[in-house]
Design a protein around this nucleic acid. Structure first.
Lengths: 148, 148
DNA sequence: TTTCATGTAACTATATTGGTTACGAGAATC
DNA sequence: GATTCTCGTAACCAATATAGTTACATGAAA
């Protein structure tokens, strides 16, 4: 796995869950599909469970599945559950320097708006949209490939 | 120094340079002001020199100064010279999975627009704006504190 | 009771980042 | 010309963050 890997892992796994509602996926299976470790999968999906996005069950026929229909879960739900914003805020220690404060304000304003843009994008995408990609259905947000 | 430290260091230093045009600042002085090391300062400002934002001179009365007037250098110039975008693109290895590709497109679209937003903000700010902050002048982008 | 699966702690491995040391080169001063 | 000041850069070290791994406990179904 590489960077931003948690979100990739989560979205990929949930996308597949969206295609087989009611059929739990095991951490082991997900790990294999993503060239990683079951424990890592549990760590990531555990964050989603805390936010009520997925549920997990132990024992035979156990595993992970969506907590509600795929069209009622947005990419933003997953993104915020991961709790790792793309733009991590700059920090400003105690300073008396007006230049530093001015710089900080500028950077922070840009970062805040950037993060909002990301959330806006992600709110417009459901897991169902991702799952539909497998049927060759192209999302309305990329009309370039529309059949006609 | 902490995270995003390069940009902070650079903007802080250049902000001060903007207030004393023609007077070079040494790496040593900048390092002290930022609780870091002269070598680190040279590494960061070296990136800016490559992009023609600052110049450096050796020997007595040497040091760093702006390569052009402060009102002709934007925060975006500095930001891009640092070459460390706030939103680092997700990577997608070779995959045949349509869900992964759909996910990748969604994330990438959001990231691209977010980065554009950041650049737009930064292009509207010059080093002169930052320097003016020391005179109590409040930037037009934060009219809340306008004297009246 | 065995097996399957998650839950979680603890440790290890690796990558990134910044800090440090060391040495070289050019420019001004003495 | 020698000294001093400054940047330029390579090489190494330390700290941090992230993911991978092992180990063991818990709960549920067969």
């Amino acid at each position: 796995m590489k960077q931003n890997s948690k979100l990739s892992l989560a979205l990929h796994a949930l996308g597949h869950m969206a295609r087989a509602p009611g059929t739990p996926m095991t951490s082991d299976l997900i790990a294999q599909h993503n060239a990683t470790n079951p424990v890592v999968v549990r760590r990531v999906l555990g964050l989603l469970r805390e936010q009520g996005v997925v549920r997990s069950d132990k024992g035979h026929a156990g595993g992970w599945q969506l907590a509600r229909p795929a069209d009622q879960i947005t990419v933003a739900d997953v993104y915020t559950a991961i709790a790792e914003p793309f733009v991590s805020p700059v920090e400003l220690g105690p300073t008396t320097c007006a230049i530093q404060r001015a710089m900080f304000e500028t950077v922070q304003a840009a970062q805040t708006e950037a993060e909002q843009v990301i959330l806006r994008h992600f709110r417009e995408r459901s897991l169902q949209d991702l799952a539909d990609a497998m049927d060759g259905a192209i999302s309305p947000l990329h009309p370039t490939k529309t059949p006609l």
